[in-house]
């Protein structure tokens, strides 16, 4: 169960619209490594975990990703409000404008609609946690790419740096969750089977399943 908290996790106050930057940054809303796919990935995967440390990590990171997609959407919104028609046409935002005006809609920078095929929920804790580690790195790389473009626009770069930093923290936490899962298994044989389906384990040791 969730309740909404009426604040951004990190403040966004953009004073100058910029349609070009909005097109780039919206990829972290609905793009392949965007925050929507991140949240759906973790909140879907947690059900197959047999280790409560991993369940907690996926729930709480998946929840934080919801806060991140709100930050990215706010950046896109503030970069596209008060645009002139001339700016919309010149910047290349025209095709997006035709379908969505300047509403926020989940798509990649190249215009591909948000697609859940960009992530997996395999029902295997080790498989899924490795994917999560990769996902955090892919998102970090994307924020690095965005930062190279927005480095001279501090009011945009500042919240993007915060989001990038969180990718690094999430990578660390998923690495720890993976270790917790592996500690329940035979160290000589981590990867040969699905720890949830073939040999269910519980953690912390001694807890009831």
């Amino acid at each position: 169960m969730w309740f909404y908290e009426k604040r951004l996790e990190y403040p966004v106050n953009i004073t100058t619209p910029n349609a070009k930057l909005a097109q780039f940054i919206m990829s972290q809303y609905g793009g392949p490594d965007g925050e929507i796919n991140a949240s759906l990935r973790y909140l879907s995967q947690r059900f197959a975990m047999k280790n409560r440390i991993a369940m907690a990590t996926l729930t709480d990171v998946g929840t934080e990703e919801l806060a991140h997609l709100e930050i990215v959407a706010t950046i896109v919104h503030q970069l596209t409000r008060d645009l002139s028609m001339e700016e919309i046409e010149k910047s290349g935002l025209g095709p997006y404008y035709i379908d969505h005006t300047v509403g926020v809609w989940p798509q990649a920078a190249g215009g591909v609609p948000q697609n859940v095929c960009e992530f997996q929920s395999k029902g295997d804790p080790i498989t899924d946690l490795f994917e999560d580690l990769a996902a955090e790195q892919k998102a970090r790389s994307t924020y690095d790419n965005i930062l190279r473009v927005v480095k001279n626009t501090p009011e945009v770069a500042d919240p993007i740096r915060f989001l990038r930093m969180r990718e690094v923290v999430h990578f660390q936490r998923f690495g720890e969750a993976l270790r917790a899962v592996q500690e329940d298994l035979d160290a000589k044989n981590f990867y040969a089977f699905n720890a949830s389906f073939d040999a269910p384990v519980v953690c912390p040791p001694g807890n009831k399943q």
Binding site: F3, R52, I53, P204, N207, Q209
Partner: peptide, 24 residues
Amino acid sequence: LNIGTMDDDAGRSWEWACQAWPWE
């Protein structure tokens, strides 16, 4: 059940993670 009512005293474990999750 939520972070607003968390009050884990010293010496107790992090019950948020260690207790059953709703889908269990």
